[in-house]
């Protein structure tokens, strides 16, 4: 499994959980889900991009 896929899976699970826990209406749930999901995905990619100049060695493949 790739790092990106795992990040996407994690973001999906957490966003779905909080959207169902914190909102009652379907539309509000969808809105919160998208906000959280995109926030985590884009935030993760941004953070990875900012860390790009500081490599710590070759990435370890995940089987």
């Amino acid at each position: 499994m790739s790092h990106f896929l795992l990040m996407m899976l994690y973001a999906t699970l957490v966003s779905l959980f909080f959207a169902l826990l914190w909102r009652r209406a379907a539309r509000a749930r969808l809105r919160l889900f998208l906000q959280l999901f995109l926030g985590m995905m884009l935030g993760g990619i941004l953070l990875a991009w900012l860390m790009y100049p500081f490599p710590s060695g070759p990435p370890t493949p995940i089987p």
């Binding site: 499994m1 790092h3 795992l6 994690y10 699970l13 957490v14 959980f17 826990l21 370890t60 493949p61 995940i62 089987p63």
Partner: peptide, 24 residues
């Protein structure tokens, strides 16, 4: 294991999510 850190994050998150469900 190569996925050790990721796996730990997933396991911790499972526990924390259930704690939030208890509070709810």
């Amino acid at each position: 294991a190569p996925g050790y850190e990721y796996g730990t994050a997933f396991i911790l998150t499972a526990g924390l999510m259930n704690l939030l469900l208890i509070l709810d």
